[in-house]
Design a protein around this nucleic acid. Structure first.
Lengths: 275, 275
DNA sequence: CGATCGTTTGACGGTGCTCAATCACCGTGG
DNA sequence: CCACGGTGATTGAGCACCGTCAAACGATCG
């Protein structure tokens, strides 16, 4: 197949052209690439959809909050951070998105994007025009399915994020965040042990709902407990069991009955992590 | 029209029958009712879909986390709380859902529901079978659109919840929660001033990520500042401007430059609310 | 009317936020 | 080559908000 390594072509494609129309001669190329990215077998080989490819440099916004919703995007390569700017100017990081994740879907029910998506590294996305998205979804059933599945997966991701925020302790939140990152890496076939954090400490802090100094301290705590090794943005998970034990402390100590329990909260938590 | 007050019929319908097959003679009744509920004009008058109606008593779960995903639900009347039970048994309230909101969509990308939905009052839902949901969505384009719009709205709701959690102060979180509730009431044509909280303080506390005693104290604080009047589960918004001012404090005080700013943190915040 | 649950209020201790300084890294220009 | 400013990460000190424990109060239902 000539499109066996299509994404690699696109990833290494021309640097200066930001908008690239795919498949002028073979209109199903963009659609096929999207189906392959999302891991579904295309049902209708002669279906067509006006899918374009867009490259975004690190630090550049794919779309801004409040701007007119023109497209729904699928990340082919790269990482994005999604954020929400409050009226007072405070920037809240809602989450991070990687390969095969969908962006901008939440803009469908209104005219503008409710969030801003910023590339954390040089990235490539597929763009589906939002204007006739419902028509496309009806004409190409497989595309409708891809959209539904991606939307459903995104909601599942929100549950994980809620689980993150449920922890009261900063170390537990960070541990859960790292484990989620590790799982997402594993899903994409990457190493779940060695992580390279594309986002800054400030972004992590905003996402976890703590001060960025606290993130540094929590990294130090996890490292001193032997869970991870941290060197700036390189994180290696040394002891996954221990990290899991640390991440499973929802609230002080879980069931009050299930152990000798809370002596000094901090000490008890550290011991639980070692136990 | 004979179906002008269809929901009312269903809400006051037979009490003992939990599953009610709608429209044995006229198969499009369920679909038409769903379209009316979601506020879209049905495009295809002769379309059909196996939509059933289900009534759920207060305190009963519509579906449990981990059980096989059988249907996607739309709330016709009533209120639900969505929660996630962690491995350690800790129950985290993810949010609340009311009329015209969708439940169970996040189960589509896997075989089971990731969350539990519990009715907070006697409620009625429309059920779409999950098995051939993609087929239905393809055969009835308007239904696909309803699903996409509802999913998109749900994601928008998640952004609001993230905005909730972005606040560090308990009073600010509660103020934002009340304002969101007020807005949702207004969207459904109800009074945005007088709220009756269907959920307990514990549920609110879990949702806001604070202790339930703190929720009580925060209610007291908002009341003492003249923002609201609280009587058990009845809440009246006395001064919306003041409540908004209180809710807009993201972090201590927003831009350090924008005022005389932080004297005593607590005092400064209270004054900002009065300013 | 008693029992159970939900709500409120109090006191205390700890965690994390704020403020601040230091260090590491980097691209620039002298 | 080194000085220089800028950004990001780390570490420290102090204090206030909130979580925990505890008890009183109120509501609802049998």
């Amino acid at each position: 197949m000539s499109m066996a390594n299509l994404e690699i072509e696109q990833a290494a494609g021309s640097n200066d052209a930001w908008f690239v129309r795919r498949g002028a001669g073979t209109p199903q190329d963009g659609l096929a690439a999207l189906f392959r990215l999302m891991g579904v077998a295309e049902a209708s080989p002669h279906a067509t959809a006006p899918i374009t490819t867009r490259r975004v440099r690190a630090g550049v916004a794919l779309f801004h909050e409040g701007t007119c919703a023109q497209a729904v995007y699928f990340i082919a390569v790269g990482t994005f951070k999604l954020m929400h700017t409050a009226e007072d100017g405070y920037e809240q990081v809602l989450g991070f998105a990687g390969r095969a994740e969908m962006l901008g879907y939440d803009a469908l029910c209104q005219r503008s994007y409710p969030t801003t998506a910023v590339a954390l590294e040089d990235s490539t996305v597929y763009a589906l025009p939002a204007a006739d998205l419902f028509g496309l979804s009806a004409r190409v059933p497989a595309l409708g399915r891809v959209l539904h599945l991606a939307a459903s997966r995104q909601m599942l991701h929100q549950v994980e994020i809620a689980h993150l925020m449920a922890a009261v302790s900063a170390e537990v939140r960070l541990a859960r965040f790292l484990l989620q990152l590790s799982d997402h890496m594993a899903e994409r076939g990457q190493s779940p042990r060695r992580l390279y954090l594309r986002m800054s400490r400030r972004d992590i802090a905003s996402h976890l709902g703590v001060a960025h100094e606290t993130v540094s301290r929590s990294f130090g705590a996890l490292a001193s407990w032997g869970c991870v090794a941290v060197n700036n943005r390189e994180v290696e998970i040394l002891d996954r069991e221990r990290l899991l034990a640390c991440a499973s402390n929802t609230r002080g100590l879980v069931h009050p009955r299930c152990g000798a329990a809370a002596d000094g909260p901090r000490l008890a938590r550290a011991q639980a992590a070692f136990g």
